[in-house]
């Protein structure tokens, strides 16, 4: 007997990625640098978030040729982004044999009401969340993995921290609630009741939860791990920095040794310039990517 694409198989790959760093890459050359630096997966995309932010325009799924090139260049899992609600981009990524699909707010949304019905897919999905309600809705739609949204392309970790703290604090409310309070919490958070019941009984999210959005230094990665994330996505933070290979490896080591300050000091030496950050308070509301998603 052989069962493919079951929930367990989809969530299983996310379990294998834990404790690791998933790096944004725009071509095969960057993918190889990421793999050699110890990335547990790469995310193939056309432009990294900082460039999407700088150049503007509509950001879409990567070109098929870039995705294929990245898939051929490394042996680790390859993820790719589809626009929110763009189930045809997701169908194409699945057909290409991509290992994980990110239905991502970093790209320009294709549907301003609905997300992709991820249960229809054989490929596992990861989705961003700013709080428990959003995480639970994505899980109900079939996401096999959740990540904080953070504020991608800013090199500023503050939003990722806010989102992780919000998820944790709202999850604690659910876990510590009386069973009579669950419907009310479901209404309050906009979270499907059955997912909250599952969280209450497991005493944790039913899927792996990574940090993403604004992580630029080994210390940022360690901070997110100490806040309880299962692993880390790094986007612009690596290939917008002075020495991508060294910074990538340092962030990998920091993610493993997140609670060991002496290792964090050691790996943070001689990394060259980090990416230039953006103060999120100065961003106009319409440019905040974390607001995308419903």
């Amino acid at each position: 007997m052989k069962i493919e694409a079951s929930e367990k198989v989809k969530k299983g790959l996310a379990e294998m990625l834990k404790g690791g760093v998933i790096m944004d890459v725009v071509n095969a050359e960057q993918a190889v640098i990421a793999e050699k630096a110890g990335a547990c997966a790469v995310m193939a995309l056309e432009r990294i978030p900082a460039d999407i932010r700088a150049n503007g325009g509509v950001a879409r799924m990567s070109s098929v040729s870039v995705i294929k090139e990245v898939m051929q260049s490394v042996s680790i899992p390859v993820m790719a982004k589809a626009r929110i609600g763009h189930f045809v981009e997701a169908q194409m990524l699945q057909e290409l044999g991509i290992d994980f699909i990110d239905e991502s707010e970093v790209l320009t949304p294709a549907d301003e009401v609905n997300h992709i019905n991820k249960r229809n897919f054989r490929a596992p999905f990861v989705c961003g969340a700013t709080g428990l309600g959003e995480a639970a809705r994505r899980i109900a739609e079939g996401a096999s993995m959740i990540r904080t949204k953070g504020e991608a392309g800013t090199g500023n970790v503050v939003e990722a921290v806010r989102h992780m703290r919000t998820v944790t604090s709202e999850m604690n409310q659910v876990i510590n609630s009386d069973e009579h309070e669950l419907v009310s919490l479901s209404k309050k958070f906009g979270a499907p009741l059955n997912i909250l019941e599952e969280i209450k009984s497991l005493k944790k999210l039913p899927v792996v939860n990574f940090a993403a959005g604004g992580i630029a230094t080994p210390a940022d990665a360690a901070l997110m791990m100490q806040l309880g994330c299962d692993g880390v996505f790094v986007g612009s933070g690596i290939f917008k920095s002075g020495d991508p290979a060294a910074r990538a490896e340092a962030i990998v080591l920091a993610t493993t040794n997140f609670n060991n300050p002496s290792v964090l000091i050691e790996v943070s030496k001689n990394l060259g310039e980090p990416m230039v950050g953006i103060n999120i308070n100065t961003l106009p509301e319409e440019e905040k990517l974390a607001k995308r998603g419903w």
């Binding site: 007997m1 052989k2 069962i3 493919e4 694409a5 079951s6 367990k8 198989v9 299983g12 790959l13 379990e15 294998m16 898939m71 899992p77 699945q94 044999g97 991509i98 290992d99 994980f100 054989r122 490929a123 596992p124």
Partner: peptide, 25 residues
Amino acid sequence: YGRQNQSFEGDVKFLDNSDIYCFIR
């Protein structure tokens, strides 16, 4: 076995016991 789309749950006979386990990439 291939990429994630070839990952599966399958029968395994381990010692004297049979059960279904995950094979992930």
